[in-house]
Amino acid sequence: MSNVLAKVLSRQVLLAFRRPAAVLNPLVFVGVVVLMMPLGLGPERDVLGEFSPGLMWITALLASLLSVETLFRGDYDDGTLEQLVTSGHSLYFASMGYLLSHWCVAGIPLILCSGLFASMLSMPTEGIAPLMASLFAGTLVLSAFGTLGASITVALRRGGMLLSLLLLPLEVPVLILGAGVVDRAIGGMPIADLLSVMMGLAMLALALAPIAIAASIRISLEV
């Protein structure tokens, strides 16, 4: 059962460390975007600080979108997915493994570095811990949608643009809630209720998304 979850997860994480670019690319992307912000908006600390929650969350969302596109690419091209489906493994738990692997490889490093990036955007210090907490739950949801989108488009020749059209509307609530948590924290308002809503959504996504991902993998293999 969850044997396959552990197997997929360890396989993907090991693969990511063999190709460190997979881990570093999203971080470098976020770094470059953070650099662009003061260049576009101006260096005033007040302006940047006011927009920083939204900017951080939009950047995280785009980073997740970019990194998820290749999640199934290699395993689709080299036949690993075929092996997985014919093996009789539970595709539900395998899908959950892929989801968690994307979160480990792309989500967790981003959460860890988000404090640094946020302070570069002169986010007030009381916002930084809430930012990390909201990213913790939010990136899990982003990985769930992302894994679903990647599995449904992996067999298509031009999946890239389509992927953003499919994912961004679904990810609207995460952006709103995530940026809202940080905004409220900076304004000195309580955030426990919002964070628990986000955590609830993350758990819901973690439980339900693998059903859709498993079905999508089967469809993609048949194309």
Partner: peptide, 27 residues
């Protein structure tokens, strides 16, 4: 269940032969 080996048999170039077998998802 059947053992299926297709044109592409799921070998990862980044893994060693040992890892390819131990982390094989086909069984």
């Amino acid at each position: 269940v059947a053992l299926y080996l297709g044109h592409r048999n799921g070998v990862k170039a980044d893994f060693s032969p040992r890892e390819n077998l131990s982390l094989n998802l086909g069984s």
